[in-house]
Each structure stands twice: as C-alpha cells, then as structure tokens.
Nucleic acid binder design. Structure first.
Lengths: 113, 113
DNA sequence: CTATTACCCATCGTCATACGAGGGAAGAAT
DNA sequence: ATTCTTCCCTCGTATGACGATGGGTAATAG
C-alpha cells in the first residue's frame, strides 16, 4: 500500500548500457563480474544494482552488440557469459564518443561564467 | 494510430533541471530565453525542446528552488519570468558538484585501459 | 490587408528506463 | 543446519524526455 519507492538514480540515466559494454570489451564476463568490474574500476563510486544490470542485459541481448552463452564460472557455478560482438565494439566506441561530447557540452554550460 | 514516437534523447537525462537552474543563475529569465541561453552557451550542441523545457519548469516550480512571475519581455510580449531562489543557488552548486563527480567516475570506467 | 515569421506559453500521451522488491539455486564455510 | 557468497532473473512502479498539439501576440514582408 503505502509503498514509497525512492528513485535514487545512483547512476546517470543512459550510462548503464555503455558501462556494461565497456565491461565486456576485454573479454566475456558473467553478470556478477560485470557489476564487480564497474564497482572496482570506478573506485567504488558507481554501484549498479542487480535489477538494473539484468534488465539492461536483456535489453542488450535484443541487439546484435552482445551475445550470451551458459558456462561455468571460476568458482564452479553455473554462469551466463556475455560477449561483445564486433558490432558491439563499434557501437561502444561511437557511443562513448557521443557521451563525451554531450557531457562536454553540458559542462560548458554548467561552468560558463 | 501508427504513432511511432522516436525517443531520441537529445539531452542526457537528468541534466535538464540542472541546465535550467544554471540558466537562471545570472538573473531571472523567461522560458524562451532559457532555451536560447542553453543553445548559445553550448555552441549549438544542446537543444532543449519546448515540451522538455516547460515540463521541467513546472516540476521545478513545485520545489523552492525556483519562483515565477508574469511580466513583459523586452519585445513587449507577455512572458513568465523564472527566478532562482537562494535555496536554488545552493542546490545548483551541490548538484553540479555531484554531476561532475558522477561523470568523472563513469569516464574513469569508460576510458580505463 | 494578409501571410509569414519570430516570439512566448503550456498539456497530453507515450515510450524508455533505473531500480526496489521479490524469487530462485547451488557451492563453501562455520 | 544455517548462513554467506556467488550467480540468475522478472514484475511493478516512478520518473523523465519529448513529439504532437493547441493556444496566443507582435513585427515584418508582400
């Protein structure tokens, strides 16, 4: 009933997909490892919840940027490995450039005298 | 019916409010002038549609960061002037810092080797 | 005098998406 | 036995960006 739902928006909307793709650039990873990668690489500044992660992954599987296959993790557990395709690499590069441009433009405004 | 609706997301979601507040930092402005300010200051890189603008303004009027009053524009037209309050200034500063931090963290990940 | 072009305001409906709350399962450790 | 860590995923909801739409007024052009 009184189910107040805080929408904290830990991450910048629109950056989730990008971060995931980047996490896959150096090779296939399973979901759990993706979150870890992002947390570690950002020095604990970014934390992506599991629901955000997996909804994004499902979304990405509908494109031709990411493939997935089941396997076994290093810890001997079943895990789904996500792989960045060649098209995905291209997309990542382009989107990253666009992201930087956009952020640059916004910051020009925000820090204008 | 077949009303395909392209969701281009010209701007980075979450940045609209921030940009508007910044536009008001140097004094009251009406809506049209806010758009112009953002377009000009970003060297035409950012363009905020009117619907985005006014929905955001309505949203901001519900907070205590922005006030509004009717007046006349320089061109002798009726115009609603939006003013940044003291609380709004504080909020802008804090949010800008947080935005920069977040973007910094994301870019650390995106450009990690 | 009419039409076009700026200037100015706003709402509705739709789509995308981030995330809390659930709901599993299986190996390792206490 | 129970708890912890690693692993997977979906549903429902809040939020937000924006196209379409529908007003207006003033100046300028034809």
């Amino acid at each position: 009933m009184g189910n107040r739902q805080r929408q904290r928006n830990e991450l910048l909307p629109g950056s989730v997909d990008l971060l995931i793709l980047k996490a896959l650039l150096r090779g296939p990873r399973h979901g759990y490892a993706i979150t870890k990668y992002i947390r570690d690489t950002s020095d604990e500044a970014l934390s992506m919840g599991e629901s955000s992660l997996y909804t994004a992954l499902q979304r990405l599987l509908l494109t031709d940027w990411v493939r997935a296959e089941w396997g076994a993790s290093e810890n001997n557990r079943r895990a789904r490995y996500y792989t960045l395709t060649a098209a995905g690499k291209k997309h990542l590069a382009a989107e990253t450039r666009q992201f930087d441009d956009l952020v640059g433009a916004i910051q020009r405004v925000l820090h204008a005298t």
